[in-house]
Design a protein around this nucleic acid. Structure first.
Lengths: 222, 222
DNA sequence: CCGCATTGTTTGGGATACCAAATCGGGATA
DNA sequence: TATCCCGATTTGGTATCCCAAACAATGCGG
């Protein structure tokens, strides 16, 4: 694989895992030494990450994209029509084998699993459901939305009960798809998105001060 | 403005206007002489355009993204839930002034206007309606979808009656938003997307041979 | 002691140099 | 004549170089 893609993936991972703080400045020279490559592939990776909005320009400088928690509502509003459409289409189009694949993914994440695992599966579930719709544009849009949500989700208290709740809701959505009940699945999906948003906003509101200190934009967080 | 952005915009325009054919190979050296810049800004522009899926890699080479006419159905399927949501939100949120702005845009495009003008307004209308929703994610998704549609729309016969039809439908959608009738607006928007898709597919079907010659992938075009 | 100008350093933007791999041609050979 | 092989050429990937602008530090003047 080209060096540029390696750098892109590693840097992406560092950003999404909050290894690099939101708003943190990135100098090309620092990245140069960090990844032991020259500026050319590094700049290509940065331009690419800019397209994914994980990195942004601040004047002439590069910074890790800040998190605007005010986006959380708009993001839910965006996801609801897409994901309800996705589950309806999934009912009509997904094969039993495809559905079983998603089921396995959920089963593989048991109570004792590490936090990272829950985080990843919680994201991938929605993308895989979108994939069942067979519509690549829906898949990409949902994947992008989940990426934007990703970092905020680390901040969720993500307590045991919260995990269980999300897992149950995922299970129910998949159940309705399996039972070929598109309207119930759509209703469940919409409710799940709303509930998750509310859970997230509630837990974030309890820690505004701490968030600001960690570089999160609390602007617009009601 | 930076040289890279100039190159990006010019190249983008050349691609969308079909000045560069779909599937055509782009060598960095040719672009170098064409834009009288060195490879550094050119590569940055290419990476950026790759993110917009207007340019793609073919092995180690760069090519103008081919048009897959088979995407047209999926694109309509993607747009319907988003645009119906957009018009519903627009009813609730758009100010009279914002609506008047879109109205002006439509009025500015009269019968005698050049083909390019109709093409542009036909795209912008949908993006502006999305903007009335106040949801930036919807705006970006619709803008991306319209960009993907853009080149195929040049191929539409785009006859006078076809233009008039689309213009009337746009007018009706906007009318329902103005009248604050979200459900009627949503129904009208969905019908418009379906109708447009059908018009496009019908006129493309009449010219499969010609399309293939011009580098369009007819695969999946039913 | 404070403020401003000047200068030295760092940064990103762009140009160029170099390399390895892929491609294309031409000629030798069966 | 058809085929295969080898070398010349072209390509994109990477490293490095130069430059102008931004920034910071420093020292001079009020």
């Amino acid at each position: 694989m080209s060096q540029m893609l390696q750098i892109h993936d590693q840097l992406r991972e560092m950003i999404l895992s909050l290894d690099l703080g939101p708003g943190e400045r990135l100098t090309e020279r620092w990245l140069e030494s960090r990844f032991e490559g020259s500026r050319t592939p590094i700049r290509a990776a940065l331009v690419r990450l800019e397209g994914e909005e994980l990195v942004r320009r601040d004047g002439r400088n590069w910074i890790v994209a800040p998190i605007d928690l005010g986006e959380l509502e708009a993001l839910a509003e965006f996801r609801i029509p897409l994901e309800t459409t996705a589950v309806r289409l999934a009912c009509a189009r997904a094969s039993a084998a495809d559905i079983a694949g998603v089921e396995e993914m959920l089963d593989a994440c048991q109570s004792g699993a590490p936090r990272e695992e829950w985080h990843r599966v919680g994201t991938d579930f929605h993308v895989e459901i979108a994939r069942l719709s067979g519509n690549p544009f829906i898949v990409k849009a949902i994947a992008g939305a989940m990426t934007r949500l990703s970092r905020a989700r680390w901040l969720e208290v993500w307590t045991e009960p919260s995990r269980e709740q999300a897992w149950r809701e995922h299970r129910r959505i998949l159940g309705f798809i399996k039972a070929d009940d598109p309207e119930a699945a759509a209703r469940e999906a919409a409710d799940h998105i709303t509930d998750t948003r509310d859970r997230l906003l509630r837990s974030l509101n309890e820690d505004r001060r701490g968030l600001r200190a960690r570089g999160f934009a609390v602007i617009g967080l009601r």
